[in-house]
Nucleic acid binder design. Structure first.
Lengths: 228, 228
DNA sequence: TCAAAAGTGTTTGTACTACACCCATGC
DNA sequence: GCATGGGTGTAGTACAAACACTTTTGA
């Protein structure tokens, strides 16, 4: 039998929407292209799938090269198939979104490549290919996911305060949430646990530190926030 | 520049999970394979993506050939990338799920191909490739989607009774729902409208007929049912 | 008049909303 | 003692859950 790959098949790109959260700002990692097409422009980091690779391998390869770090939260987003999405020819893009706490990057062996940069989700430049559409879909997914799944913990330090978690939600959803009601809902869900220790060295009252409850399996919280 | 497709790329299959609902049973369309691998076994219908096709074109091609009908509700499900999912070589599968009201098939020009058959979702045979996994994911998606999106209307006739809609939900979710509370929730959502006409010719009280409210854009209902 | 399915309302409890004051800390 | 941010409680409301009787129809 003739092997599959000797037939003519579209190229398969894996493109990544990497979200980072730092100082009350949600950012996305963008790559400055060195080659045509879109030379000098910004795009999502990505790579072509190699014949023996799983999608997650390709993701790791990109993340290792560009961020110096690869074991992140990864989730498949969507597969894009427009005929003219790449001027070089037919290319399918399987997209993933990833979450990273940028402060961890400092502790990892690698460093960020010099052709990538963080951009606030509020100030995304024009993007090459159909990457603006991909980015928008990723942001939408993140916003709906955070309402019922503790994705936020991928973006915070191991120990965090209630205020930090609260601000993370407000930043990602881009709305304000009542502080007291937020606390009640989150604590009732048991997704976080108080550690009994407090953050020291602040000028004001020392807040309790929390950790993510890793033992909890059920998704038993639901923030009821109207999605636009 | 060397065209993309002259590089070696994995084959791209589009596989479809087609759900049909008839007489209180949710079914899936399966194809009996004529060739190796899995000759004689059951698989999801699908086809390889042609170079100039959109995914939806490939879906239409499969649906037209196998069901004799193509304009169905279609939604991309997931893209599968296991290295050994096809014994013939590396093949990626982009999967879709489709919804069809089998009673409409009788009115369409084509007829169902003789190598496909409906199977109740409660009696799915062994499936070739990784198609059992794909099927399970599709069923999961349908079950969660029906809680906040009116997918049910793709599966019912244009005019339907409250009881038919109620039974559809019970069948798909495989649980029982209080008839009175169900009615209240659905009516409050304004996803369906009473027509003022009744179904005639029954032995008992004639039920009101409803239609889907096509003008409603917002997804403003949420059936609160615990998902397993 | 009987069988079968459709239609209807109320009570109870729970969960979300809105909202304001006191507390701990470092300077 | 003051500025800053952290921590806490309650009353009102709205929605979901549980539940049973009456109505319409054809046979």
């Amino acid at each position: 039998m003739k092997p599959f790959h000797s037939y003519s098949n579209p190229a398969l790109a894996i493109d990544l929407v990497v979200f980072g959260y730092h100082e009350n700002e949600l950012s996305v990692l963008l790559l400055n292209r060195k080659d045509e097409p879109f030379k000098g422009g910004w795009v999502l980091p990505g790579a072509f799938l190699q014949m023996e690779e799983r999608f997650s391998d390709t993701c790791s390869r990109v993340l290792r090269t560009k961020l110096g770090m690869d074991k992140l939260y990864l989730e498949q987003l969507y597969t894009f198939d427009e005929l003219d999405r790449d001027p070089r020819g037919r290319a399918i893009s399987v997209t993933y979104f990833a979450l990273v706490n940028p402060s961890r990057l400092e502790f990892s062996a690698g460093t960020m490549a010099n052709d990538v940069q963080w951009f606030s989700v509020k100030k995304i430049p024009d993007l090459g290919f159909d990457h603006k559409i991909i980015f928008k879909k990723a942001l939408q997914r993140l916003r709906s996911k955070i309402l019922y799944f503790p994705v936020g913990f991928e973006l915070l330090d191991e120990y965090f305060t209630m205020t930090e978690l609260h601000e993370l939600y407000e930043t990602i959803l881009d709305i304000s949430l009542d502080r007291r009601n937020f606390r009640r809902t989150i604590l009732a869900s048991e997704y976080i646990l108080p550690t009994g220790t407090k953050r020291e060295g602040l000028q004001n009252r020392h807040p309790e530190l929390y950790v993510f409850n890793k033992k909890l399996k059920k998704n038993n919280f639901q923030l009821n926030i109207p999605l636009s």
